[in-house]
Each structure stands twice: as C-alpha cells, then as structure tokens.
Design a protein around this nucleic acid. Sequence first.
DNA 1: CGTAAAATTGACCATTTTCAACCTCGGTGG
DNA 2: CCACCGAGGTTGAAAATGGTCAATTTTACG
Lengths: 237, 237
Amino acid sequence: MKISLVAGEPSGQVCTDCAIRQFSLCAALDKAELRELEHLGRHIHFASCETVFAQEEMTSSFYNLMEGVMRLYKLLPDGRRQIVGFSLPGDFLGLAASARHSLSADAIGAVTVCRFSKVPFARFIEDKPHLLRRINELAVRELSQAQDHMVLLGRRSAEEKVATFLIGWRDRLVQLNGPSTTVALPMSRQDIADFLGLTIETVSRTFTKLERDRVIGIMPGSVSLLDPARAEAMAAA
Amino acid sequence: MKISLVAGEPSGQVCTDCAIRQFSLCAALDKAELRELEHLGRHIHFASCETVFAQEEMTSSFYNLMEGVMRLYKLLPDGRRQIVGFSLPGDFLGLAASARHSLSADAIGAVTVCRFSKVPFARFIEDKPHLLRRINELAVRELSQAQDHMVLLGRRSAEEKVATFLIGWRDRLVQLNGPSTTVALPMSRQDIADFLGLTIETVSRTFTKLERDRVIGIMPGSVSLLDPARAEAMAAA
DNA sequence: CGTAAAATTGACCATTTTCAACCTCGGTGG
DNA sequence: CCACCGAGGTTGAAAATGGTCAATTTTACG
C-alpha cells in the first residue's frame, strides 16, 4: 500500500482546542504539559487504504487518531488476515512490545492522525507518572477488549459474531457521536469477515438473515438496528 | 535454577532471594524498594482447581505467580468457556480495566502466588515511573500475545492451532527451565480445547494424528517433540 | 451511462462438531 | 490381591456449520 507523500504541517490547532482530547491519552495532561506536547505532535493525513505503519516495520512514532477509522491487522505468511481491531478517534496507536510493529494499521476512508516521534515522546512521558498511569489504563482496556474478542472468535456462532460486532460497534459510535438509530459501517464486508474470523460470504448471508428476521435494515455503508433488543440478546447469549 | 511447575515450600519471604524475580514485575525494583515491597506481599497457596479470583468479583488484589500454572478464562452465560491464557511463574495477574475482574483465574495443580492488596500496592507504584513503565511493558506484551492468539482463533485450522500451541508452550517452558525434549502439559485436553477454540474430541484427534505422523510422542501429562521443525512449520504456515 | 469493485446468492463440499461408545489408568474397598 | 469405579481421554459415525467456487446483482464513480 502506498505511503502519503504529503508532509505533516505543524498541528495548526492548539491541543487545548482538540476535539478528541477528552477521549485520548491527552485527557491526563494539564495546560503546561499540553503546551509542551504541541511542539511534539504533527497532524498527518492519510487517504483511504493508505498504511500508517506496517507489521515488521521499525517503530518510529506513536499516533493519536484524530479523524476517521483505521483497521489493525496481522497477516499470516500465506496471506490470511486477522483484523484485531478497528480504531476510532481518540485511540492511541503504535505501542509495541519490541522495536518492530507486530501489526499493520491502515486507513478506512480519509484519516487524520497526530504523530509523535518515538524518542521525544518517550522522553516526554518518562517522568510523568499520571501520564504513565493513563497509558496503562488504555493498554489494560485494550487488553480487556482483546480478551472479549477471543471469546467471540473461539466460542461464538456466525450469527452471534455478527450481532456482537454490530452492537459493539454501535456502542463505540454512540460513545463518540451520541445515540443514533443507524450504525455507520465504513469498513467493507471483507474487513468485517476478517475481524470476525469468517468469510465474506458468511458475513453477507448472516446480514441477509438478520434483515429477513427484521433485526436490521441493510443500507449501503450502514445498517439500521430495527430490533436492538433482539440483537443485544444474540450478542449476550 | 529450575522453576517448578508444582508448588513446594516457599523459599522464604525475602524478595532478594525470590527465584522468579528476574521474570517478574519486580525485576524493575532496586534493593530499597524490594525491602519495602516485602511488607506488602504475602505468599498464598492454592490447591488444584481452586479459584484465585473470578469474573465479576471486585478486584481487591494483584498477584505475582510464584510456582505452578494457572488458567485465565471467560465464561459465556450459557457456560461456553474461552481460556484466554495460561500463566506461568513470573506472570503478573489482576490488572483490570474496571473495578471488577473481567475474567477468572484458577490453579492447574498446586500454585503459590505472592499477593498484594490493591490499595497499598497502588500507593507503592503510583510515583515510581520505572515501575509504571515496567507494568506498561508487561501489559503491552500481553496485548501482543492476545493479538497473536486472535489470529490463531480466527484464521487457523485445528492442526495449525495444536501445533502453534505446542510450540508456543514449549518456548515458554524453555524460557523458564531451559531446553528440554519433552513438553510438560499440566492442563487437561478440555483446557487445551477451550484455549484453542476447539472441542476436546478435535484436540484429541489432532494429537493422535500428529503422533501417527511422527511429529510428537504422547505421554501422560506431556508430549515429546519428535520433529520440532515440522511442528514449527505448521505453527508458522 | 458504463465499467469495475463490492456484495449477494446458490450449489456443493469439508472441516469440525455432536453424540455415543469404548478404552486406560489410578484409587478404593471387598 | 484384584475387581470395580470414575474421570479423563480416545475413537467412530453422522450431522451441521461454515467454507469454496461460481454466477449474478448492486453500488460507486469516472
């Protein structure tokens, strides 16, 4: 996948005005720290399907997702893909256990990130216990989500997987944008399949079945949850 | 120094003599801090199948696993179980995103843990950036393992799952005890099945097939890796 | 509009599950 | 000492869920 040639401009907006600050890492920072951080971050835009970082690449930066949606995935040598998560504004990306990324991240639709070079950012956080605790909090929350997803992948039927995905995705969108009857699905059916450990055909069939059962209405780029209670029941079961 | 998979007598409560310190959280601490920590931790023994903490229970402690093996799992309301990981000596348990545990942990065989009450431990770490960074490191490593396991659960065949499990488990044991031709499997077939998202029958059949193919030798409580290269190839593929 | 990509649908197939029977081994009590 | 018991494990046959392959429809976009 191509890498954007567009250079990052200085962040243009000040951190104190940042729309997603409350959802992000930066919620833990005071005014002075935010002013310091402004000098470290650069806003960068990525077009649809551009790769922000890739599996095996050296880690050089951390990213705060500002706008858009990203997919995080791992590839097996033979090309099989598992999407381990979708990122929304406020999510912090780039933490890795080693010096190389263990997964790839690319844009689903246009994306803006706030990029921090690794070394300066590491220096910035190293003696800020409140920020370290905040990063911990985010890491532990992600770990918990990962464990929930393992249950889904290992122990749920196709229908349960799709219902659980729709409910979980709706909840995340509600968190950001407030309640809504329709659930935007910017990712492709293939993305959903690779997230749920299914094939695209099974995802499609399951959507169709849920529509026949009047649980959802299918529209291009979104679904409407006609019977949220039924969907939630399938997701809980 | 050999790390036992079965609990024996604690070698004393002195952190500086702790056999698993190098593998644990405590590797980040200096002598003074270790002496302080000694007053916070208590060794506790659990018999086989006893629960150390359970899903939905209030979090009250953190645990450093000293001896033995534990399974970490989540249950669906209808009883389906997904084991999200096995813990070995040195692993740190009890981090949770909320005030309640999101998973259950119980002993496979006899276990010794070093228990830290939540509040004093939180106070101990709160202004120790090096320790916070160490906890981060452990959390990120666990997250990375979780992501690897998602790939396994979502995208691998039964045979690949079993081979990947055996190789991964062997590598963890080698890390602790040094090289060995036989791989101890203290967990039951049902545990392995619930870890790999399979049924016990499929696990059993796959073991048998690997034995027929002269990749492994099956013994009660362990397997020997007759053809590690073949097994590794299956795990990588 | 017209074309290519994405999504859906259908028919068939394979892997894994389900259900059931049967070993194996260790412990227990006659 | 040995027969019995039960838990854990293995094996077999049938069923089913989801996958594969192929054709068709729908959508996005120049």
